[in-house]
Each structure stands twice: as C-alpha cells, then as structure tokens.
C-alpha cells in the first residue's frame, strides 16, 4: 500500500504541522516503510479479543471537589510567548465590525 501525497498533506493538516511538498514526499516514503511493518498485525485473529487501553485494573478515579489555591498567574504567564497584561496574545480570531 502506498500513501498518496494528498493523504500525507491531510494528516499533516490534522497534526497541525506545516509541510512543504518536498517534506510531504520525504514523509510519505518514511511512513510507507513504517506502515508496511504494521501489516504483520493482520496475521493475528483478534475478532473476539477485547482491547486493552492500559494495564491497570482501574477505571475512572474521583476525588472530593475541594477548593485549593491555583498557580500564581505571573508564573504561568512568564512562559507566554506573547502576553498582554493578564492575557495570552494570539492572532485575531474574529473579524472586527
């Protein structure tokens, strides 16, 4: 099976990775050889097998909803690539009227 360039572009878009056409082609070759390696799994009959998502025998874990102090705002914002007073700055997300 060979991935099409459009498929690679689509996956890159889903993964939020900007890629040039040249990068997409190189990625296609690498993904092809890795995906070929996955084909071996089809040899196993898993029709009646339940999936395992992790090894622990536990499902949801709940705790009491108790108020506690949150992180200091300045410490959080200190890592912001762009900040505006108490906010993170991002490009415009809505057109101005």
């Amino acid at each position: 099976m060979r991935l099409s360039l459009d498929e690679v572009r689509h996956v890159a878009r889903l993964g939020r990775l900007a890629m040039t056409d040249q990068q997409c082609e190189a990625m296609r070759d690498q993904l092809d050889s890795i995906l070929a390696h996955f084909e071996a799994l089809q040899e196993l009959d898993t029709d009646d097998v339940e999936p395992t998502s992790h090894s622990l025998d536990m499902a949801n874990v709940y705790r009491d909803d108790e108020p506690a102090p949150s992180f200091d705002r300045d410490r959080i914002l200190a890592n912001a690539p762009k900040r505006d007073d108490e906010c993170f700055r991002v490009p415009l997300i809505m057109e101005e009227d």
Partner: peptide, 25 residues
Amino acid sequence: MIGTYALSAGYYDAYYLKAQKVRTL
C-alpha cells in the same frame, strides 16, 4: 504523523484498535 494517521477516520480500527487488541494478547 504516524499517530495522527493511525487515529484518523477510516484507519482507527485497522491500526489503533487492532493494536489495543494485540496488547490484550
């Protein structure tokens, strides 16, 4: 890219779900 592909619509059963089942085996 591998992960996004394996989880994407149309491939989830063949890759991710299959792998989770093999994990059980």
